[in-house]
Design a protein around this nucleic acid. Structure first.
Lengths: 244, 244
DNA sequence: CACTCGAATTCACGCAGGTTATTTTGGCAA
DNA sequence: TTGCCAAAATAACCTGCGTGAATTCGAGTG
């Protein structure tokens, strides 16, 4: 199983064998959590960058009265906040959605690798900017899209992000999160998530059984969800020439 | 009128006179736009960092069928995407909400200043991370907060951000944007924005006439809106010692 | 001063999605 | 196989917000 961070970054730059090794060296598994556990809580001082190696996690906030919003979903290969060090306190929580394996990378380890391999630095910049773009697209979804569009859009996004780390086959992928968590992410009630899934299934746009999602016709789902993949910036930069 | 970027960054680090001058030198006004004009469109290649010197602007996206979502609001002192250069195309638009004065700063100008004054680099990191935190809080608002809470939260946020650049007095500030734009930002219809403002006014939490917003009791509005200011990270880092 | 036009306000009605509660399913352990 | 429990599914009812259409206000302008 190849390192998902390496796979992801190679969607943007071509990495040399040496660069790949450097990344793999600093992202060895250091922590395992079960489903529904917190990785770090708000108010805590961030001590390292968490890189997801296996499983799904999320950023979330909890309002005083219990309402919960999942702010972003982390998949294998995702970095949780490179550079939070500048701030002294977390203003949100990181939690797992499924059992998860994490690499805790120190600030200095990142600094050194980036200093030695500037192209990795570039790639990490790209990854940060894409993460911000995803956050913006969630804002659009929550503000404008109807429930079917919103869920459909999320399926498209997660499918493409999983494909970028080689975790899909032609039309399907693992989809291990509960309808309750989906609701907290999409700003919808569990009941309405269920209703909406039923509708998407009935229209033939998705199949979802157990933990398996199938999108028989991705362009159709994209069209129905007003999904434009350009915000993911997945085309590799042609100005960067590889040397592996 | 002091440079709003300098004022803003000084909420995080203390800057020397030399550092202040360096910032002011690279943020001279270079472009003036009227209200409701586009600064840069999606698909365009970003050529420089836009720093808002006067007026209000916004990031927004437009769906194929015309629905519009304002993704973030830019106030004087805000930088629109330091580092977009890494991506080749804008995935959203930048537009003005009021007449605006902008400083277009080149990538190299930023690089040089940051290289010469590392503390400015730190401060720009802080500003980037706070911008991301604001984006996350908007996700929470759109996903969980009711219309009154959502608007109240926005008022609290904008008031504190304006205060950070010295553009408020005790309880009030300019508030120059239309109810239609507010609606596009909060994911609510113009009619409902109007209803909600009426309700907030009736409860005495805000006064809003013409382009003037007054918050007679900020803590009360914060409580009513589930507003926790810690995500703005405005307390200055005590580990940074000034030398001016 | 009257005119204009965008912005704000108000009204009546409809729908997307919330809430509470109940039932069914399915994975897993004893 | 039985039992357990979380997750999924379904139902009935309710509400926050959207829609479309007027009407009023207010800052400029000739």
């Amino acid at each position: 199983m190849p390192n998902p961070l390496v796979r992801k970054l190679e969607n943007f730059v071509r990495l040399s064998a040496e660069e790949r090794q450097a990344l793999e060296r600093i992202t060895q598994p250091t922590r395992r959590l079960g489903a529904r556990e917190d990785v770090i809580r708000d108010g805590d001082r961030p001590r390292h960058v968490n890189v997801i190696l296996e499983g799904w996690a999320c950023r979330y906030k909890q309002l005083e009265d219990g309402r919960r919003q999942v702010i972003s979903i982390f998949l294998p290969g995702d970095l949780c906040d490179p550079h939070v060090f500048v701030l002294r306190k977390m203003d949100h929580l990181l939690g797992t959605l499924t059992p998860v394996v994490i690499a805790e990378v120190s600030e200095t380890a990142i600094r050194e690798v980036v200093h030695q391999y500037p192209r990795i630095g570039e790639a990490l910049w790209w990854e940060m900017l894409v993460t911000a773009a995803v956050q913006r697209e969630w804002t659009v979804s929550l503000g404008q899209r109807l429930a079917t569009e919103r869920l459909g859009h999320l399926f498209c996004e997660l499918f493409l992000r999983l494909r970028a780390v080689g975790m899909t086959n032609e039309t399907s992928c693992e989809f291990p999160i509960t309808q309750a968590d989906l609701g907290d992410a999409m700003g919808l009630s569990t009941v309405h998530i269920n209703r909406t899934l039923k509708e998407l299934r009935a229209s033939g746009l998705i199949r979802l059984r157990g933990r398996q999602l199938t999108i028989p016709d991705l362009p159709a789902l994209q069209a129905a969800s007003l999904f434009d993949p350009s915000y993911l910036h997945y085309e590799r930069d042609p100005s960067v020439i590889g040397d592996d």
